[in-house]
């Protein structure tokens, strides 16, 4: 048996098995029965029944180093993360967002204003108004610069969970995988990689609205492959729906520069975070229709059908490499570039 850890490690925040285990061991205690989807589901957010509609709520705290990175910043990340979590539940029209910020003493005002501008612009892009907020300051060294928390609420007629896959369903990814994680990592470790590694961070509610309009009830499961990457998202979808998933690696859209950076660092693009992508499980008959709707949207131009749900090996993900097959490991721990 694994030892019960007495101290929290970085791996407990990295979206993999360690984090799931910590949440189950510590926080599941807080769950109580609700009319709808509550904490116990460990989904992207909660859904509470209001008459014949659903109120979807999600909250997300954001820390990233560096706070400004190629393709985005912590403000854009914060709004996109929350809007996307709502969208993954089927709620694509946010009613309002909150913004709570905790700052470290000495944080530059110019940087704060830059983050504010980014929050504003991204919220406009998503059509999501900020409605309230909170500000705290902590002493120097008590936190690293800035922590942002965003909560979002939205109403929807139909809930989509991350647990709805059944054998035979097909799985789509809305675009290139691995962009955000490798862009941030190569900047953080100052790897001086050439080429245009840029985060994909973006609010996806418009794209998901288009997919749902095309697929309707045939869109049966959604998840955003953030921490833990595509591998983490597929593992969670497989485990919750008790299906196996076969991922066809050659069909996964990955940019050449992302693949090259990954090979150099010894980091698989399948396990790094995406902040502007979604994974959609759809009934086979609707797959082409949903794919076409995704591709017609600017954020879904590179969408691809790359996996399928099967009855074999429930809870596991088989990777078909195009050459052979193996199991895809569930991501665990903090990602570090290869030492030697």
């Amino acid at each position: 048996m694994e030892k019960v850890v007495q101290r929290i490690g970085l791996k407990h925040g990295s979206g993999g098995r360690a984090m799931r285990q910590l949440i189950e061991e510590v926080f599941l205690e807080l769950a109580s029965p609700v009319d709808g989807i509550g904490l116990a589901a460990l989904d992207d957010g909660a859904a509470l029944r209001i008459g014949d509609r659903w109120l979807v709520i999600t909250t997300d705290s954001h820390v990233v180093q560096p706070i400004f990175f190629p393709g985005g910043d912590i403000g854009r990340l914060s709004v996109s993360g929350t809007v996307n979590d709502l969208a993954m539940m089927g709620a694509t029209e946010p009613l309002g967002l909150t913004c709570a910020v905790i700052l470290e003493e000495g944080f530059p005002r110019a940087d704060l204003e830059r983050v504010r501008d980014s929050l504003r612009d991204t919220a406009r892009e998503a059509g999501a108004p900020f409605v309230t907020g909170d500000t705290k300051v902590m002493g120097k060294g008590e936190l690293d610069g800035i922590v942002l928390n965003t909560t979002g609420v939205a109403l929807t007629d139909r809930i989509v969970t991350d647990a709805g896959l059944a054998p035979g369903d097909l799985i789509l990814v809305t675009g290139h995988v691995g962009d955000h994680g490798l862009a941030v990592m190569s900047r953080r470790h100052d790897l001086g990689l050439q080429g245009d590694l840029r985060s994909d961070v973006a609010p996806l509610n418009g794209l998901i609205r288009a997919a749902l309009a095309a697929g309707g009830d045939d869109v049966v499961a959604m998840k955003d492959p953030t921490r833990g990457g595509l591998a983490g998202a597929l593992h969670e979808m497989a485990a919750k729906a008790r299906v196996g998933i076969v991922l066809e690696e050659p069909k996964v859209p990955i940019r050449d520069e992302v693949r090259a950076a990954g090979e150099m660092l010894g980091i698989d693009p399948l396990v790094v975070a995406n902040e502007g992508k979604a994974v959609l499980g759809v009934r086979a008959a609707a797959a082409e229709r949903v794919l076409a709707a995704l591709r017609a949207h600017p954020l879904g131009a590179h969408a691809a059908l790359c996996a399928r749900a099967v009855a074999d090996r429930p809870g596991q993900v088989v990777l078909d490499t195009g050459l052979g097959r193996r199991l895809l490991a569930e991501p665990e721990g903090e990602l570090l570039p290869r030492i030697c």
Partner: peptide, 22 residues
């Protein structure tokens, strides 16, 4: 070590092969 057999197997799914998988 990243060159060690156990580390490599663990990284790539933990089972030797899927010849028996459908």
């Amino acid at each position: 070590s990243t060159e060690g057999a156990c580390r490599i197997w663990h990284t790539y799914g933990g089972v030797p092969d899927l010849r028996e998988a459908s």
